[in-house]
Simulated scan of single mutants.
Amino acid sequence: MGKRNSQDELHNNVQPLDNDYVRSNPNAKKAKQRAKKAVLLRRRLAIFSIIAIASIVGLIQFSSMQSERLAEKQIKKAEVDAQLEEALSKQEMLNLQISKLEDDEYIAKLARKEFFLSEEGEIIFTIPKTVDKEDEKTDSDKKDE
């Protein structure tokens, strides 16, 4: 308010010239008005430019954030797809095993194999696993020492 009052006082203290030149030159007022309009136009353009630049920068930042989010989600989707594929293959294997376990002959064969059960009249022989020749040499070398 103080600044405005001082400007008003300056305008009140200024007396327009009233001489022949000022009265004869009507273009002076128009030139002054044009200059004032030009200043206002420049101010409007400056404000509009600042707003436009801020909007463009904001949109660019928003776009880059969206593209980063999209890339992260695509990576996550690829991981989830891999997990899904693994789960589907495991489910398929389990379904196959379920169908085998529904067969009585398969269960009997599995029981004989895993638990050394036998049918009547069968004799079960266990054969030790074959040992590599290199393992035999190292065992015999250890015994010699």
Rank of each mutant, 00 (worst) to 15 (best):
K143R: 08
T126N: 04
P128A: 05
E122W: 03
K113V: 03
Q91H: 03
E79T: 14
E102W: 01
I50F: 05
L88E: 09
M65I: 13
S89L: 06
K143T: 08
M65D: 15
S64I: 15
L94G: 02
P16F: 00
D141G: 00
N19W: 04
I47M: 05
Q61R: 15
E68S: 15
K109M: 13
K30C: 00
Q97L: 10
Q7V: 04
K32T: 02
M65P: 05
P16C: 01
L10A: 05
L88K: 14
A71N: 11
Q83N: 05
E114I: 12
D135F: 06
A46S: 11
L96Q: 14
I123W: 01
E114S: 10
L41D: 12
D135P: 02
S24W: 02
N19M: 11
M93N: 15
S49E: 07
K32G: 03
A31C: 04
K113M: 02
A38W: 00
E92A: 14
E85I: 06
Q97E: 09
D8P: 00
L59S: 13
G2P: 08
E134L: 08
K113L: 02
L110K: 11
I124W: 02
K77A: 15
I51G: 05
L84A: 14
Q33E: 15
D81W: 00
K113H: 04
N12M: 06
S63V: 05
Q74K: 14
L96H: 15
A108T: 12
K73I: 14
D104I: 12
E119W: 00
E114K: 13
K76Y: 02
A28T: 04
N19L: 08
K76Q: 15
E79L: 03
E86T: 09
K76H: 07
I47K: 08
L94Q: 06
E86A: 14
E102Y: 02
A87Q: 06
D104V: 10
L10P: 02
I50Q: 13
D135T: 15
D81K: 11
L88Y: 01
K32S: 04
V131M: 09
D135Y: 03
E134K: 13
A87D: 00
D8G: 04
K73V: 11
A28S: 03
K137N: 01
R112F: 03
N13T: 05
D81E: 11
I53Y: 00
L41C: 01
A82S: 08
A82T: 10
L59G: 10
D18Q: 12
A71S: 15
Y106I: 07
E122Q: 12
M65V: 13
E122G: 10
R112N: 12
Q61S: 15
K30M: 03
K29G: 02
K133V: 11
V39N: 04
S55D: 04
R34V: 09
Y21R: 09
L45H: 09
A111M: 08
M93K: 12
K90T: 13
D135I: 08
E86W: 06
I50W: 03
E122D: 14
I60W: 04
A82N: 04
I60V: 15
E92F: 00
N95I: 04
L117N: 06
V131E: 08
S49H: 06
I75N: 11
